[in-house]
Design a protein around this nucleic acid. Structure first.
Lengths: 356, 356
DNA sequence: GTGAAAGCGCTAACAG
DNA sequence: CTGTTAGCGCTTTCAC
């Protein structure tokens, strides 16, 4: 059956004004909070006309006239990853609560793509851009990203980075280093001897921060007398792979082959930890009994794995909300907000539990 | 430190044209795929100027001039729920691949809010709106939703519903009924006797479809001679709760109290199934050993729970992609695409496994 | 208070 | 092929 393709154009402000018998200006003023007030009689007529014509303001036109949209542009690495979904959820909710729309793009963890996305987002003239995800070690692409973001701010936009500090913009930073350090300290003193770290891609700062924090906390706890951590962490192997379940699985296999069975596996991500557990079982090693496993993030949908995964909880949604807050109430100066991490010990590291 | 708040306005097409020494039209034509071609010399000059001025086209202005944006508006119930995240991921990826932006709103599972969101999305003049989530039984709010969507189409927009058929728009429907029916048949013949269903809110069609499909499949398998399923399903209790892990937990508790221990628990959602398993354990009943449990969706991050959850897999991402496809290549007539469901038997229903 | 009119940045006839 | 020009729908001075 052919669809009703009337293409009746949407009612415009013109239409409303004409229908109400007032000027364009008056209609505009009553239909959106202008500073000036309109006589009640006209107001009512305009409102009635708008209702009757089912008028919806053309946001694009408004944006063109005003020079900026009431929108926040979100860039995440992967919306399918619960870590990002949680943060994005916070951003979207806060944006809607603040009367703003949200547009979203996915970079697929590609830094180049991230730069591209910022560039095209700029065309949307959003009030702000929230860039969520790990920064990378590559200085060249970071420089290009910074240029794009600077340009956006020069145009009057507001940039907020969510994840870690380092670039000259407002940022919400999760305390990866301190969280990993605390986790390591807790587990080191609980009695585990040989640890191994399953890290993400080397270029990702988030992976580095977590791995380094862990190594540092581990070294300090094991050799409290020593000053520098470097000598002492040499005995904790670090294996790199992707930031996914599959990555954890793969890294665990490699780790077992290259370094034998450890007492404790620290995966820099819950997703990786779960992959690692699967790989361990496949090798006949039972996580939580034969070997301890810890992750990072405290992903909600992963809280039901067995054994319960020891991890570090991050206030992800809160981070998203805070980012929008910064956009809504922009201050004159660059601000940095550190969000705390909290160690959560569960049965995957039984010695840690007893050590409570 | 005070921020560099120069507010240098972004370069406009005017600026580029002037800088390149060509007309506005020429600049416009080279900078965005117009049908017409531009002499190579001018082309180069314009491109260079654009590069030099760091020009980014004002998408709002383009939209105003063209009458429509190159955007798809997404409405989901909850981006934090992996079910929706997966679908949204498909939509966003497909949109970007098709050169479109994506704007996203979250309804929080509130049908009223959904209507509101469609209404304000209309203001964005997106090429299409993809409405993802269960339809509801409430006729009044459904009528209002339909009105909004019709208006949007009358204005030249394109509506795609993802989840189930029933409204007069293009839709991508997951085969909930058939999937649940197949699951029930498989498990009923595997030897389970007393079943119980943990359903979502009664008004949600998705919950109904899955519960009804299960009851039907169960009845047919148990009493193949009978024609009507109604008499025969009376012995399978249905308990309702929220569409979340907490909902599953709560419903399971109530089910145990009201109906005693079943042989098989079917939760209409993996999330609910996992909550139910937790509640069972708390009651000293071990899922997969003392009682069988099955879910629906085959959520990726839930594939690592123990025992492995028997469930029905839905091509979620594919559904999102198909929706965008419909927007990109709109046909004249209303189309309905049914996406198949696939039963996945794991250790949470051991009899089902053996029965392979 | 109200309305006329000049933009906002871009597109798309239309004429050369 | 190029340039001129009239819009797109809305905001916002600026007179009244």
């Amino acid at each position: 059956m052919a669809r009703d393709d009337a293409r009746r154009p949407p009612a415009t402000l013109q239409d409303v004004a004409r229908d109400a018998g007032v000027s364009l200006a008056t209609a505009s003023r009553t239909l959106n909070g202008s500073a000036r007030r309109v006589k009640e009689e006209y107001r009512a007529r305009v409102l009635a006309a708008a209702e009757r014509l089912n008028y919806a303001p053309n946001l694009q036109a408004q944006a063109v006239a005003r020079g900026r949209t009431n929108t926040v542009g979100i860039i995440v690495s992967d919306i399918t990853d619960p870590y990002f979904a949680q943060i994005a959820g916070g951003i979207i909710a806060a944006a809607e609560a603040g009367g703003m729309g949200a547009s979203i793009s996915v970079s697929g963890r590609d830094p180049e793509r991230e730069v591209q996305l910022v560039s095209s987002l700029r065309g949307l003239r959003p009030a702000g851009i929230v860039l969520v995800g790990s920064r990378v070690t590559d200085a060249a692409v970071t420089a290009r990203l910074e240029t794009q973001l600077r340009d956006f701010e020069a145009e009057g936009g507001h940039v907020v980075l969510v994840t870690q500090a380092g670039l000259p913009f407002d940022t919400i930073a999760f305390d990866n280093v301190e969280g990993a350090r605390a986790l390591a300290a807790r587990l080191a003193t609980a009695g585990y001897a040989r640890a191994i770290v399953l890290a993400g891609p080397e270029r990702l700062m988030t992976s580095r921060e977590r791995a380094d924090g862990f190594l540092e906390g581990w070294a300090v706890a094991k050799h409290p007398a020593d000053a520098g951590p470097f000598e002492d962490t040499l005995d904790v192997p670090v294996v790199h792979s992707e930031f996914t379940r599959a990555g954890g699985y793969e890294a665990m296999g490699r780790a077992l082959a290259d370094h034998g069975r450890p007492d404790l596996v620290f995966a820099v991500t819950d997703l990786m930890a779960v992959g690692a557990m699967a790989r361990l079982r496949e090798a006949g090693i039972e996580p939580g009994r034969d070997v301890a496993v810890a992750g990072f993030d405290d992903i909600e949908t992963l809280r039901d794995v067995t054994p319960g995964l020891t991890t570090v909880r991050l206030p992800l949604e809160q981070g998203g909300i805070a980012a929008v807050d910064l956009i809504l109430h922009r201050t004159g100066s660059q601000s940095l907000m550190r969000l705390p991490a909290e160690v959560v010990v569960r049965e995957s590291t039984p010695a840690g539990v007893e050590h409570e």
